[in-house]
Write a protein that binds this DNA or RNA. Sequence first.
DNA 1: CTGTATACCATACTGAAATATGGTTCAAGG
DNA 2: CCTTGAACCATATTTCAGTATGGTATACAG
Lengths: 219, 219
Amino acid sequence: MQTLDLTPAQFKALKCFRSFLEDSGASPTLRELAHEMGYGAVGSAQDVVKALQKKGFLSIPEKHLSRSLRLTEKAEQLLGVAKSAVGDFFQIPKLGSVPAGNPILAIEEKVGTLLISKSLVSKNAKPKKSLSNNLFALAATGDSMIGAGILDGDWLIVESTPEAALGDIVIARIEGDATVKRLAKVKGKWALKPENPDFNLITSPFEIVGRVVALQRVF
Amino acid sequence: MQTLDLTPAQFKALKCFRSFLEDSGASPTLRELAHEMGYGAVGSAQDVVKALQKKGFLSIPEKHLSRSLRLTEKAEQLLGVAKSAVGDFFQIPKLGSVPAGNPILAIEEKVGTLLISKSLVSKNAKPKKSLSNNLFALAATGDSMIGAGILDGDWLIVESTPEAALGDIVIARIEGDATVKRLAKVKGKWALKPENPDFNLITSPFEIVGRVVALQRVF
DNA sequence: CTGTATACCATACTGAAATATGGTTCAAGG
DNA sequence: CCTTGAACCATATTTCAGTATGGTATACAG
């Protein structure tokens, strides 16, 4: 008998369990699992599940509750799958056009949503009650920030805030146009510094829309 | 009457629904929802759910199935929360050291995990059966690729494959050392091109470990 | 004033899910 | 040889979840 390892049937059951979870968003019932496994009887699924419980790959918080089986940490590691933590992600709007006006997110501007891991932003962004409501994504355009490693087409994850520190990369609005630059100070006055020698320092009045907290690029 | 907006009770119910989902990983039953809402009757939860269904915030794929209520896109947008789809994400290992040997992922090398949205990689990576098993993340070190917008400390999401095309940014192994470069061809021979004038073209023998399909940076 | 929707309560019915029990192979170990 | 456990099947029972129905009170629109 093997206590640590799984039998092929048990492993298959775990995979069925996982894929059901991924597809439907909920744990399968024993009958559903039996069906996925090709069983003709519920009892077969019972047996496998019981074995997996004993081996610590499935847990059941309460008895007599439907769909209450859960994959344990152990199982998640083995399967190499993201755990079902809904709370680990933010869904933030992609803005296609310039963030303008207040409130900042007009529906018309929204061109989609971006899913990002909380861990991507939580280190950097200020801890607010509902961070996800203060985040949005903006596609970088132009080459003015190539010195900072920001290329045309990159998705910038922006924390919507008027506060920024010297040296932060910020989204600023200048007469209605949004732009991404590094916040600088020149002769005691705030300025926007491009990271590209072909562009000039901006000293005209601007308003800070938010701080760039993260970046995502797809090659 | 308001058809598009939600009443306070309905909004509260949605939030209860969401938090239950986050906590337990499964949709609440009507009784559980009633309890969360402070109701004394199941019927009350029924009413709210019915209203939310009519307004398009909750959906039910099949009748008489337990815990089958799902938040719709609309509700997820309103709540600003990542949907409960476990399948929308990959959990990929962060490799702290050089990927070496076969199998490529020795446990010792794993320094953590990175959660990424499938949409980040699915456009680019080749459709394989289990993509998540072929992905890993590697921290970029050095400045040899600043011309391609890859900075020191960036997380590179890599698809583990020996196949790459001209111009792809690849992870290559040269005598045990891993490096990120652009795949080039010089005088009919494959070469690794840095994107930094301070570095030299690499023509010595190398082995392609994988293709860089995405990048994440935290500021 | 009347119809309609919200927002609750109460109760009963039905189907589904979990559980219990018992059976049959088959392979491996003592 | 006998026991044990995996891996299936079949069936019955109990509890739970979804549904149906009907009630009350309030608010708002026509």
